[in-house]
Design a protein around this nucleic acid. Sequence first.
DNA 1: GTCGGTGCAAATGCTTTGCATTGAT
DNA 2: ATCAATGCAAAGCATTTGCACCGAC
Lengths: 156, 156
Amino acid sequence: MSLEPIKPTDSSIAAPEFIEPLCAIFRRALKADRLKYTPERAQILDTIIAFEGLFEADQLLDTLKSEGHSVSKATVYRTLKLLESAGIIQHVLFDREQSHYQLAIGQTGNTLLIDVNTGKAETITIPELIDIRNKVCASRGLKAEGHKLHIFVSKA
Amino acid sequence: MSLEPIKPTDSSIAAPEFIEPLCAIFRRALKADRLKYTPERAQILDTIIAFEGLFEADQLLDTLKSEGHSVSKATVYRTLKLLESAGIIQHVLFDREQSHYQLAIGQTGNTLLIDVNTGKAETITIPELIDIRNKVCASRGLKAEGHKLHIFVSKA
DNA sequence: GTCGGTGCAAATGCTTTGCATTGAT
DNA sequence: ATCAATGCAAAGCATTTGCACCGAC
């Protein structure tokens, strides 16, 4: 089980930052902390990328196992933390049961559209929101430090 | 330790629904399920009412104990569930650590202002939000089923 | 040979549950 | 008598951690 090399981005095409391969971002973040891009971490990230929308830790573990990768629960959780602090995934808390995660890269907004039937989520930006939020806070003598909007949706 | 009677609302004053004593609402909800308004449940509700903003289960338990009430952890959790299904308190999930709760009665909005320093929260309504939410969803062929907005604030 | 990474099993911490006992109607 | 409530301790469950071993530089 060898370490997969970084696929170099084709620099003759002006590649926007947000389509930089996630593994490259991860490698950079790891290197900055003198940590290693191991096969387990690569597999975990690959599996996450293949998910659409939300996923849970044990779902991730199951998928890894069913693909024949042997990764331990401990490593999954440890890697999720690394990915989170690298800004590659984010926690999404919308029920009390369990932590959910999703890719965070390339998603500028902090509004989540969560499909109540499928559990899939999409991150969007609602520009007006910042304004509204700031006005609401200002009128109460408060300063907005951040916000999170979750909209629960179904197919119309 | 005897059962505290309902304090009757002064019916000569037109009391708006939302200031109906919470214990009366609780009693009604319990009675509807043939459950009992016990001293423990009364104490738990009273203690919750005395809190401002968010609280955690073990905080509630500590407060009860320090006031000399002997209530078990199990009863606290069981009562929190009852209060939640009676619509008197609501779960507020804003970090992964623990469940937070707060009074839900009289709070029509589903926007939470959470003070990042004190952890206290206030529920407010932002009327425009529903409109914005619906427009965003409609433009994607989705139907909004509900939403939750958390704004993290500090004193300006 | 020093560090970090991994897997396993044990530990943690919040929450729930089984059970025997108690109290209300 | 019946039916629900309580306290306690044990169980559950997601997540974390301690430790021994392994591999890269």
